[in-house]
């Protein structure tokens, strides 16, 4: 059902152009933004990293997780603990957090790959629900500081760069997003990506063609956990604070819904989804605290019926309408 690989028409040139233009905009953006807006833009970038990972799992590999907020939380806590209790520099903790999540993701993925469809959703649902409790445990309190949470000092721009702390964090996050994007793009375009998609669409056929289904499923789960963990780690530095209740079930759910609204199985879907995650609650919370969620819930149901390809599909449709190129790619 997700629009598979988007090998659209006149091909890679237009795509390269689009990516280049987006990159330029993203690099120049902080100049135009206030401090708070820069912070929000940074949140969009780091959510986009998490959604790239989740999209590999859900959009490309067809596994369903309602619990990726747990990996986001683990990544955030790893960074916060390493910085606050062990004095490790924040930039060095990001890869560590990613690796920790990779390992935990694989460990969770091994049993999970035996669980089809909604059972995996159920298990991850439980994980998301249980994790805040685990973070509050007395046993870990020396590190996690229990309910109180951990404060992380905001880093300044290094090497005497003429940037504010927020701008520096923006570029720091952008760097990771670029890395994450390039890695994912290469992976998904290659054999591994083909295998992931084959498993999503035709699991039996993929297995009979010699694709090691369980290996790919586990690795995809681990990889998506790594992405989400890196995003979480970045969020600890950007938000400067972690606490068990910032990582409720709601976070996990918003990841899943954002990726559906953004566009499953497309790279751009992650970015659109991340924008949605940050912008909608901001606009709607003026109305009431519940409004963003109501919008989320209704939007996702409507999208599921009207535009299963998400915002990406919508944009593509409009774009194709304007540029009068008939029958573009998947959206027919």
């Amino acid at each position: 059902m997700p629009a598979s690989s988007s090998q659209a028409l006149p091909g890679s040139r237009r795509r390269t152009l689009l990516i280049g233009a987006t990159a330029v905009v993203l690099v120049l953006l902080p100049v135009l933004l206030t401090q708070y807006q820069t912070f929000q833009a940074t949140m969009i970038l780091l959510y986009a990293i998490a959604l790239l990972g989740l999209n590999m799992l859900v959009g490309y590999n067809g596994q369903i997780s309602i619990g990726h907020g747990a990996f986001f939380a683990i990544g955030a806590y790893v960074t916060a603990i390493l910085v606050s209790s062990f004095g490790i520099p924040y930039w060095a903790t990001i890869p560590i957090a990613g690796l920790v999540c990779l390992v935990i993701g694989i460990l969770f993925g091994i049993p999970a790959l035996r669980l089809e469809g909604h059972y995996l959703a159920l298990a991850t649902f439980g994980l998301a629900l249980a994790l805040p409790q685990i973070l509050k445990l007395h046993v870990f309190e020396a590190w996690t500081k229990g309910v109180v949470g951990i404060f992380v000092r905001k880093p300044k721009a290094p090497f005497g760069l003429p940037l504010t702390a927020d701008q520096w964090l923006y570029y720091f996050t952008l760097f990771f997003l670029a890395l994450a994007f390039l890695f994912a793009a290469n992976l998904l375009r290659g054999r591994i990506g083909q295998a992931m998609i084959a498993i999503r669409d035709q699991p039996a056929a993929a297995a009979s063609m010699g694709v090691n289904v369980s290996y790919y499923k586990t690795m995809t789960f681990g990889l998506s956990a790594l992405y989400t963990g890196v995003a979480g780690a970045l969020s600890a530095v950007v938000v400067q604070f972690v606490a068990p209740d910032s990582f409720s079930l709601h976070l996990s759910i918003s990841f899943l819904l954002a990726i559906v609204i953004g566009g499953l199985g497309t790279m751009w879907g992650a970015l659109f989804g991340a924008v949605f995650m940050v912008v909608v609650p901001n606009l709607a919370s003026e109305i009431s605290t519940a409004a963003p969620w109501a919008i989320y819930g209704v939007a996702v149901i409507i999208f599921m019926y009207v535009m299963p390809t998400g915002l990406v599909g919508l944009v593509r449709k409009i774009w194709n309408g304007f540029s009068r190129t008939p029958a573009a790619g998947g959206a027919a």
Binding site: G117, H118, H250, I253, L256, L257, G297, V298, I301
Partner: peptide, 10 residues
């Protein structure tokens, strides 16, 4: 599942 989750938060 997405629709169920959508209903849940709605």
């Amino acid at each position: 599942i997405v629709v169920f989750v959508g209903l849940m938060i709605t």
